[in-house]
Every structure is written in C-alpha cells, then in structure tokens.
C-alpha cells in the first residue's frame, strides 16, 4: 500500500503514473477539440496559422449555414439509414457466428481467425479490394449469368452502391464483434446451462432465456462499438464509393471532410462536425443508459 503524506508526495505519485497518458490525452484530444470548437465561430480559411489570428469572428454564422444546408441533412439521414442497417446486421451475424464457432464444430479455431481477418485489414485497402469486386467481378458474373442485377458495376447505381457500402462495413465489423460475443458465451457458467437441460429446456428456450440475458454486457459493448464505428465510418466510404455516384452515398463524415477540405468551407465543415458530435454523443449516452438498465434487471 502507498501511504502519501504531504501534497507534494501525492502529486509525485500521481505524476509518476499518469503524466504521460494525461499529456497525450490533453495534446492530441482535448486541445484540438477545443481549438476546433473555437474555430467554428470564425471564418478561418484552413491555411493561415491559427495563432496568427488572421481571421474574423463571425458568431453563429457557420452554424446557421450548416443547419440550412440541404445536403448536410441528406447525408445525415443516409448515415442514420446506414447505421441502423450496419448495427442490426453486424450484431446478428456476429452473434450467429459466435454461436457457431463456440459449438462443437470441427476446425472452429480456424474459422474464428478467418472471420476475424477482415478486421485486421485497413478500411482503405478493403475499399480498394471491394471496388474491384463490385465493378469488375460483378460485371463478369453478369456476363456469365445474364442476371440483370449483375450487368453493370454496383458502384455506379446510387442504391446498389449504398448496399455495397453496407455489405463491406458489416463484413469488416462482424469479426471483431464475434470476438466479444465469444468472450460473453464462454463466460456463461456451465452449471446453469446443464441445469436448464436437466429441466428440459429446448435449445431455443435456452438461448432466449438463459444465454441471451447473461450476455447483456457483451451486447452493450458490441452495440456501443458498432454504433460508434458506423457513425464515424469514413475510410471505407472514401475508398469504396468516394461518395459517388454523384454524392448519393456520401455519409456525414465524408460530407464534412469534403465541405472543409475539398470545397474550402472550413468553418461550415467544422460546425457540422460539432453538430455531428452532439448527435452521436447523445445517442451513445442514451444507448449506454438503456442497456445499463437492462443489465440491472
């Protein structure tokens, strides 16, 4: 046990353990966040040195522009659609795979690593690989089968490009969520499972009334992670569709990036980023509170 006497001692032991992480947190997270927030009230052009103060304070103008921008709300709506689809499908698939690879399947360790691999490849690389599949390979399939859906690249049709985006994201995220579900499944005490079979519970009843309630913490984590990841999805979007065709698959993060860096409206883009932060933070807090309540009951 540590026994710190004076303030200096306390400070010393505190600094010993947390100076580096705290320093990192402050410099790479807190300060950029605060500076970025302040910049939303200026007309900074993205080029001038921030300390030069070579820009004007414009009050809430950037926010009013952001709120009035139709494209921003379209992108936000599309993101909600994307998040719902990705969260639902990722968790269903990940849970199903987790059940599968924890059953008495031969070669289950092999399958575990196979399903996890997509998560180890960066989003940009994944995007480029899938561009090839959705454009060239799909057309090749179309040539052979003559199916209408495969005649042309999926990435040039707004609806199909969106589906492609969801498929790749689900495929990438499922492996990681599977790991969390496996940990949850393995953590369920065997005696409860045995007791339920002695009581004559069917596999479905066991899953529904024993396994799933005991897995609530795993669901909390997975839901939170998939929510956060899909709201913040950027690299797959950039590399796979680039927002195209004609900005129809532009998720909100890519929209913000384009606004700030491509169209040079730095203030508007940053204001939109702050709006997105508020929305995501609210949703994440609601979600964690809700599942926490489930955990307690």
């Amino acid at each position: 046990m540590y026994t710190e006497k004076g303030l200096l001692d306390k400070l010393k032991s505190f600094a010993t353990f947390s100076f580096i992480p705290l320093f990192a947190f402050v410099t790479v997270l807190l300060i950029p966040f605060l500076v970025g927030f302040l910049l939303t009230f200026t007309d900074w052009n993205g080029i001038a040195a921030i300390s030069s103060l070579d820009y004007n304070w414009v009050g809430l103008k950037n926010y009013s522009v952001a709120f009035a921008d139709k494209d921003f709300w379209t992108a936000l709506l599309l993101t909600f659609k994307y998040v719902i689809l990705v969260v639902v499908f990722t968790n269903i698939i990940a849970f199903a795979i987790a059940l599968l690879v924890t059953s008495k399947l031969s070669g289950r360790n092999f399958f575990r690593s196979i399903f996890f691999v997509p998560n180890l490849i960066g989003g940009v690389v994944l995007g480029f690989i899938w561009v090839f599949i959705f454009s060239r390979f799909v057309e090749y399939i179309g040539d052979i089968t003559n199916l209408a859906a495969f005649q042309h690249s999926w990435l040039v049709d707004p609806d199909k490009a969106f589906i492609a985006l969801v498929i790749v994201s689900v495929w990438q995220l499922s492996g990681y969520m599977m790991l969390i579900y496996i940990a949850g499944l393995v953590g369920i005490p065997n005696d409860i499972i045995e007791a339920s079979s002695i009581d004559g519970a069917s596999p479905w009843q066991r899953l529904r009334h024993i396994v799933m309630p005991l897995m609530i913490p795993a669901f909390t984590i997975s839901l939170f992670l998939t929510l956060r990841n899909s709201f913040m999805a950027f690299d797959v979007n950039l590399a796979l569709t680039g927002g195209g065709p004609f900005r129809s698959t532009e998720l909100v993060t890519l929209h913000i990036y384009n606004e700030a860096f491509r169209f040079q409206n730095y203030g508007d883009g940053q204001a939109k980023a702050v709006i997105l932060f508020v929305i995501v933070a609210t949703i994440a807090i609601i979600q964690v509170l809700a599942t926490n309540r489930l955990e307690r009951t």
Binding site: K10, L11, F14, L22, V26, T27, I31, I50, S51, S52
Partner: peptide, 25 residues
C-alpha cells in the same frame, strides 16, 4: 484526489497552450 487531477489537467493545458503559441509564433 479529484481536485488534484483537475488542477493538474489545467496546469498541463496551460503549459501546452503556451508551448504551442510560442512554437507557431
């Protein structure tokens, strides 16, 4: 302890801000 953390954080914040502005000036 909590006060200490907060105080420390502010100190750090102040230090880095000074450091940054000094660097970019």
């Amino acid at each position: 302890m909590k006060k200490l953390v907060v105080g420390f954080l502010f100190l750090l914040l102040a230090l880095t801000v000074i450091g940054c502005s000094g660097g970019t000036a």
